[in-house]
Simulated scan of single mutants.
Amino acid sequence: MKIYDYQVKDAKGNLVSMSDYQGKVLLIVNTATGCGFTPQYKGLQELYEKYKNKGFEILDFPCNQFGHQAPDTNDEIQNFCELKYKTTFKLFSKIEVNGKNEEPLYTYLKSQKGGFFNRNIKWNFTKFLVDKDGKVVERFSPATKPEKLESKIQSLL
C-alpha cells in the first residue's frame, strides 16, 4: 500500500482519504495538548501559514499514549489549539501510534522511516515529512523544532 491508500478520521469522525492530499507536501505529527513539546504548535502554525498556499499541509493527530497528555475530546483539543495557538491546519481524530490499536497510517509511516530495531514512536510531536509523490522522506524526533524543518519543506515544494 501507499500513503494515498489510507483513510483516517477527522476530528468530527468523518472519513478522509489520504488521496485528498496527493500533490502536496505533508508534515504528519502526533500531538498532545499537555506535553512539554505542546508550544511547538506555534512553530507548526507559522510554517503552515507561510507555505499552505504553495502546496503544504500539516496533519495533526492527537495521541494520548504518552503520559496521558491528550485526555480531552477531539472538540476540546481543537478548541484548545485554536484558542491558544491559533491553529488552522487539519486536526484529525485522536489515535494510537503504537501497539495493537495503532492507526494503520502510522503503521505505514513507521515502516517507511522507523529505524531497523525500534520503529515505535517514542513520544508526542514525532514528525513525518512526505513529498508531493507520497514518499515518506524523513522522520524527526519530538525535540526537533518545526522551524528546523523549513529548508527541507522549501526543497520539496
Rank of each mutant, 00 (worst) to 15 (best):
K132V: 04
K132F: 05
N98L: 02
N74T: 08
R119G: 12
F128Y: 15
R139V: 07
T87I: 11
F61G: 04
P71C: 00
N120H: 09
P146S: 11
K152N: 06
C81Q: 02
N64L: 09
F56I: 10
N118L: 09
C81N: 04
N74C: 04
K54L: 11
A70S: 15
D75N: 14
E82T: 06
F56T: 06
F117C: 15
E57G: 01
E103G: 01
L156N: 03
F89N: 05
Y108R: 00
K148T: 14
A70G: 13
I58S: 07
E150N: 09
F80D: 00
Q69C: 03
T107E: 15
K152T: 14
D72E: 09
L156D: 07
P104L: 07
E150D: 08
N101Q: 15
F80L: 13
E150W: 12
F92A: 05
S111Y: 15
I153Y: 11
L105C: 08
F61A: 01
E57L: 00
N124I: 03
P142K: 00
E96H: 05
N118W: 09
G134A: 06
K100H: 12
N98Y: 04
L109R: 02
Y108L: 07
P104V: 11
T88Y: 08
R139E: 07
L83P: 14
S155I: 13
K86V: 14
F125C: 01
S151N: 09
L105K: 04
L129H: 10
Y108S: 07
E96L: 06
